[in-house]
Write a protein that binds this DNA or RNA. Structure first.
Length: 243
DNA sequence: AAAAATGTCAACCGCAGTCGT
DNA sequence: GACGACTGCGGTTGACATTTT
């Protein structure tokens, strides 16, 4: 980061907004409408850059924002849409009038993401095991040694495989899809096995399900969205949050 | 009561897409 | 087509609040 919170850097103020700054921004939008955020500083004297102004307006000052807690109904929508779209928060936000992508993202992280925390907190040993497995599987893919038909015919979690095929038919590379899916299944299994015996079976099941859900989300992000890259699995294997 | 841990959320950053020149 | 400015998105950070020990 390198910037001092609440101070001025290169002429721009940073940190929490004051009531006066909010007022200036609201007046600007009243007069000029949303957009052209880089003009705000010039036209109002506000010492905030365009990005900061846009963010403040979109996430806090917009009059159509719904305040207060996420309702159970909204929560259900978030869950459903996240299962479908993954971390595409702005897409999810479009189905929740008055809620911002930032709000939904924060909500998800604080209410649901923590369910997977235990998985990430596992010992270095299990991380190393997973890392080795991923490396191995990646090497297998590189060497074209994965027989797609063979893998698809494996008995493990056939329903999940079927669901994946329905939900994400346009993935970039079916071989990668299957290979990664199995690495996640293996990951999930090994994590469960390494759990302390005090964990109930239900806890383990839910943690694994949440983990798979994360997998779905990440999978979408790395395959069907614009940012997809052919070597998405390599990216994934080197992403710390993933093991 | 105090310290530590955890939760919450506003705001930042970098990246990528779009648009105008 | 190349380039720069602008915009939007998702991930992350840090300050503050709340809960737990």
């Amino acid at each position: 980061m390198g910037s001092s919170w609440g101070f001025i850097e290169e002429g721009w103020r940073k940190g929490p907004w004051t009531a006066d700054e909010d007022r200036l921004l609201i007046e600007y939008v009243k007069l000029h409408g949303e957009g052209r955020w880089n003009s705000v500083a010039r036209l109002t004297g506000l010492r905030r850059n365009g990005k900061s102004c846009r963010l403040r307006w979109v996430n806090y000052l917009r009059p159509d924002l719904k305040r207060g807690q996420i309702t159970p109904h909204e929560e259900r929508i978030i869950l459903e849409l996240h299962a479908r779209w993954g971390n595409r928060w702005s897409t999810i936000a479009q189905s929740l009038p008055g809620r911002t992508d930032n709000e939904i993202k924060n909500y998800w992280r604080t209410h649901f993401k923590k369910k997977t925390k235990n998985l990430y907190d596992n010992s270095e040993k299990s991380r190393a095991r997973l890392w080795k497995r991923q490396q191995f599987q990646q090497q297998q893919r590189i060497n074209n040694q994965v027989d797609i038909k063979k893998v698809m015919s494996l008995p493990t979690m056939p329903q999940a495989k079927e669901e994946m095929a329905i939900l994400y038919p346009n993935t970039i590379d079916q071989q990668d899809q299957v290979g990664f899916f199995y690495s996640m299944v293996n990951n999930s299994t090994s994590m469960s096995q390494s759990k302390p015996s005090s964990s109930s079976n239900e806890d383990i099941m839910w943690d694994d399900l949440w983990n798979l859900d994360d997998f779905y989300g990440y999978f979408i992000n790395t395959t069907t969205c614009n940012k997809a890259t052919p070597n998405c699995l390599q990216t994934m294997a080197t992403t710390p949050a993933f093991y």
